[in-house]
Amino acid sequence: MDHAPARPSRPDLDDLTRSLHTPLERIGVEHADLIEAVRRRVVTNAAVPSGSVAVAAFNSSI
């Protein structure tokens, strides 16, 4: 059985603020889960919840 914790589905506030203190060269190693969470949450074509206003102009979306 795999006991590895599930990756976070969204970037964690503490992780985000803490990663600001990590030099760029180490960020990929020390915050790999955060990078994956950001990639999933933010990058277009990642799973976007139905009905969300993901990109573009809010004024035409509200």
Partner: peptide, 14 residues
């Protein structure tokens, strides 16, 4: 603003 900067740094690393 700090979280947005952090997201940009994470995207840079990606």
């Amino acid at each position: 603003a700090a979280t947005q900067l952090s997201i940009t740094r994470a995207l840079l690393a990606a």
